[in-house]
């Protein structure tokens, strides 16, 4: 478990990052917390001749809650997300989800940017960002552009990010209503067997809007528009939840692995989503 030789770059600013990327194209990768990339390099599954450490690059940190919008710099760690009281108040689902990612040691290193940018279907943040309808900011040679989290993921480890771009931050509107991040995993540190991110708004007895995204049940996170739609306008009765679950099940495409066969994963994802909806609705 020793990676192939690589060149280590530690630029001081984004200009420096972009120039290494421009020079080496897909031979270069940026490094944030390293919890996805470094194991892949050690297993020699990722060949990264040029590794660009973002640690010294300014302007990539910070949690900003203002004017109804939340902005997180790409290098914000999960530990920072958990600790931030303003964020916990504005978007409590982030803390609830972050606490279910690995263990404290990992969360001190793991970043929001790395988690969403790598395109690992096991990561929790991509689905969560889709649920929150977040926007990712990418910087490249041609400047900055925005892309919706719901448009970002193409396949496992394949995203809309170009090789010479860096994901610098995520932003989303302060969510309202009830929330839940429900995750089944085999043990601490494991990826989800099934996980669901749910945000629900309520108008009296009626659900006025619902966003539902699932994790590790396809080769990308799954934003299930239909599942959310199935709840909207209903009173979130058992049969409404059944409809949402049914819609979700037709959107996911799990594969068999050591967590279990497809049949089990479909069953577990239904159970997890039911629980997430029930908890989110109870908080709405």
């Amino acid at each position: 478990m020793i990676p192939a030789a690589f060149e280590y770059h530690r630029p001081k600013d984004m200009e420096g990052v972009l120039s290494v990327l421009a020079e080496h194209g897909d031979d270069a990768r940026v490094l944030a917390g390293g919890h996805s990339l470094i194991p892949m390099m050690k297993l020699r599954m990722a060949d990264v001749p040029h590794l660009i450490d973002l640690q010294d690059v300014g302007g990539l940190g910070g949690i900003d809650v203002a004017d109804g919008t939340i902005r997180l710099g790409a290098m914000v760690t999960q530990a920072e997300i958990i600790a931030h009281e303003g964020l916990a108040k504005a978007a409590p689902i982030l803390r609830e989800a972050s606490l279910q990612i690995a263990d404290p040691q990992v969360r001190y290193m793991g970043t929001i940017g790395g988690n969403v940018a790598n395109g690992d279907p096991g990561n929790d943040m991509p689905g969560l960002m889709q649920c929150l309808d977040a926007t990712f900011t990418l910087v490249g040679a041609d400047g900055e552009r925005q892309i919706a989290a719901r448009e970002f993921y193409q396949a496992a480890y394949m995203t809309a990010r170009e090789d010479d771009e860096v994901l610098t931050g995520v932003s989303f509107t302060v969510p309202s209503g009830g929330y839940a991040y429900e995750k089944q995993k085999r043990k601490i540190g494991d990826y989800a067997t099934a996980a669901a991110a749910v945000q629900i708004t309520r108008d009296g007895e009626t659900c006025s809007g619902a966003a539902i995204a699932m994790t590790n049940l396809s080769d990308t996170p799954i934003f299930s528009d239909a599942a959310g739609a199935a709840l909207t306008g209903t009173q979130v009765t058992d049969s409404d939840i059944d409809a949402a679950v049914k819609a979700m099940l037709s959107d996911i495409d799990p594969t068999e692995d050591n967590r279990g066969p497809i049949e089990f994963k479909r069953h577990a994802s239904a159970v997890i989503l039911r629980r997430a909806i029930a908890r989110a609705w109870s908080r709405a």
């Binding site: 967590r259 279990g260 089990f264 069953h267 577990a268």
Partner: peptide, 11 residues
């Protein structure tokens, strides 16, 4: 007795 095997027993 991991999760899916227990689930399968119940199933």
């Amino acid at each position: 007795h991991d999760h899916w095997r227990i689930w399968k027993t119940a199933n």
